[in-house]
Simulated scan of single mutants.
Amino acid sequence: MLRSDTPACALEDQLAEIVQEVTLRGEAAERRRLDEIEVARQKRVRWEAAMEEARVQYAEAYRVRHFEAQEAAWRHATRLTEYVSAVRTRVEAMPPGQTRTEAEAWIDWAATRVERLDPLNTPPRLPDIPEPRADDLRPFLGHWSPYGP
């Protein structure tokens, strides 16, 4: 409310009321500002918790993919081992000579290759989890953005 001199009330007489009104409005604005800061702080805390949980879920999903890849590699190596074994059986029935010697060389190469492919030939261990990029975390964040609250 704008104050001014009037015949009924001098501006000087209204000054205390004006100062009180300005003070109250200033205090209300400061409370709103502090409330907004607190709301933003709480939102950031929730976002940071969501990011931490997303990192945990990302790591678990990475381990699962690694585990499944090891199983697929094992199945592949098992099939190749069976194939090399079948070839070996066939080659052993061949008469000695150049063709058999070349086939045995191939069998040696293939058996070595299969041995390197088989994940069971090394002790299992948890994979090193790479540092996730923002987009790597997106599937685990729900409504949150990986870039900030």
Rank of each mutant, 00 (worst) to 15 (best):
P96E: 14
Q57H: 08
A40F: 06
E12A: 13
M51T: 02
P119A: 07
P119V: 05
T89V: 15
E115L: 06
R133E: 15
T101Y: 03
R79V: 06
A103N: 01
T6W: 11
E21I: 08
W106P: 00
P123S: 12
E102D: 14
A72C: 00
E17S: 13
W109A: 05
Q20I: 09
A110N: 02
Q57R: 15
M94V: 02
R3N: 12
D118S: 11
W74Y: 15
T23V: 12
R44P: 00
A110V: 01
T122G: 04
E30T: 10
E53C: 01
D136C: 06
N121P: 03
F67I: 00
H66S: 08
R79P: 00
L120S: 15
E102L: 15
V22W: 10
A59L: 04
R100E: 05
H143Q: 13
V64T: 11
A93W: 04
E52Y: 06
V114Y: 03
T78W: 09
Q42C: 06
R63M: 11
R133G: 13
V19N: 07
L15C: 07
E27H: 07
W109V: 05
L80H: 03
A8C: 07
I18R: 06
I18L: 14
R33D: 03
Y147G: 05
R25T: 01
V56D: 10
T6C: 07
R44K: 13
E102I: 12
A110S: 02
W47H: 09
A105E: 09
L120N: 15
A50N: 02
A69P: 00
V84K: 02
F140C: 10
A54E: 03
D118M: 08
E48C: 07
V19R: 15
E104V: 02
R33E: 07
A72S: 10
L11K: 09
D35C: 01
Y83M: 08
M1A: 11
R90C: 07
N121G: 14
F67L: 12
P132D: 09
R88D: 09
G142K: 06
H143T: 15
A49P: 01
A59I: 03
M94W: 15
A86K: 04
P127S: 09
G142M: 05
M1P: 06
L11W: 09
R55P: 03
L24T: 06
A54H: 03
R138S: 12
G148N: 01
A10V: 05
E17R: 08
W74V: 00
E52D: 14
G148A: 02
A103K: 01
D13V: 10
V56H: 10
E53T: 06
E104R: 03
D136W: 07
L2I: 15
E48R: 13
A16M: 09
A54W: 05
R65N: 11
D35T: 07
P123A: 14
T99Y: 05
P146L: 08
W47T: 02
K43Y: 00
A86N: 11
R44G: 00
R79H: 10
R25I: 00
R113I: 01
L24E: 13
G142P: 04
